[in-house]
Design a protein around this nucleic acid. Sequence first.
DNA 1: CGCGTTTGACCTGCGC
DNA 2: GCGCAGGTCAAACGCG
Length: 521
Amino acid sequence: MDDGGGGSVGGGGVSSLIPNRRINEMDFFAQKETAKVDVKREATAHDGLAQGFHINTGLNLHLASGGSEKSSVDGGTSPSNKEKLNMSDMVGLRAELENMNKENKQLRAMLSQVNNNYSALQMHVVTLMQRQHNRRAEISPANEVNTEGKVGERSRNETIVPRQFMDLGRASMAEKDESSPSWSGSRSPQTNEDASMESRRRKTGSTSNENKDGGREESPDQSLQGGLPNKVPKFNCSQDVEQASEAMSMMRKARVSVRARSEASMISDGCQWRKYGQKMAKGNPCPRAYYRCTMATACPVRKQVQRSAEDRTVLITTYEGHHNHPLPPAAMAMASTTSAAATMLLSGSMPSPDGIMNSSFHSRTMFPCSPGLATISASAPFPTITLDLTHSPNLLQHQRPNAQFHVPFQNLPQNFAPGSHAFNPVLHSQSKFSALQSSPEIQPPQVGTEQVLKPSSSSSSDTVTAATAAITADPNFTAALVAAITSIIGNVHPNNSSNSSTNTRSSNVDNTIGKSNFVDN
DNA sequence: CGCGTTTGACCTGCGC
DNA sequence: GCGCAGGTCAAACGCG
């Protein structure tokens, strides 16, 4: 195993990704940039107009650029002529101003339209969730999947119970909770774990690590993940308080597991990590490495990295906690992604008033709005949502190999370098929730003609649905929105040859997922 | 010398 | 209560 370790691998991966990404992501941003430039132009023009307008009407001295020439030319003309000129200018300027007002109105209309669409999507997702839940309640849990693919967990699957997905109200509540003590990061000392840790530290008298882990006890408002809005939860009744505390506890424990193909020891997510431990886990010959975020001294975020027992090329990265520091753009993607996933997970796992959550604690549920795309494991003690990035790269490559955008997930693992199958935003948005659908074992993607010709059942609609789910649950709306858009765009351009992406990927050294995808199996 | 990794020891929770 | 497994600590070690 490569030990190059956390930071070096991570940093190198990210930095090496950036230049590569430009190639294929330019298009998207080129448009954006031009749009920005246009807006700027308009803005400056507008400013200029406003200035000119103001000056003309007020001081009558000079116009922005042409105006001064005019005034110099008009040097000896009579004031009436000047007024005529200014009047004509004013008329033109007013016309332009009106045009801009029109544009402004149009833009506002577009904005409201987007908002409406977003609301509609929300409603749609909620409906889908409820439908799925109702269906799942009828279907035997035999279809459920052992997401983590651990042999020892099979027995659990026999007792899996579909988890109830709550409505968005609860989801929003989850967000609230998430923003307060963070979903697992800044744990308060009153939790068992922290109480024990506290006592342990008191015993050992270890004060040096107080700061290290002090992040767990930091004030809730410090824990922001990926720029999530910091909402202050307000609970009115004792029931709410109970629910909130339970939810907060869930938040703290929630984990997001990302499965990705990588030959590297760790996927690069834009953060700096320091390895603080390694353990042999039962049932897996590969050791599990423990990393701690070192971007801030008290950052409570930790992650575990372990190779899959079944498929050594699959790297399972489990994130826990909220960053308590501003994240670099490269890390925002993963943070918001995991945060969104955790929010989704917790929005579906929030305890219901009648305690449904407890009864289904040993449950594992497919993501309802995208069956087979994401897996939620509520196996105690930590509810975990698994985002499987190992699936259907070829399918997505099929869908849209070339177009690669700066999606918020771009900075997921280094493996998602441009040109990689895995980096394909469609894949990404899909694979974010992609998962381990119906087979009891995780089937590593069969790379080759078979899989290319036989894409998984996750249709493009699933992709869109998954993306919309992300939108719904993701507090970072922008990020999720881009994912959705990307997905939709991806579905608009199907049947592209996979060669181009293959070629691009082959030029990317850092794309370990792509490499492994290509080589493996 | 500082920083990060390694690794054995320790602690805790959980199941029997 | 005991043993096991997961998680963490911290001294030792390596590297630049």
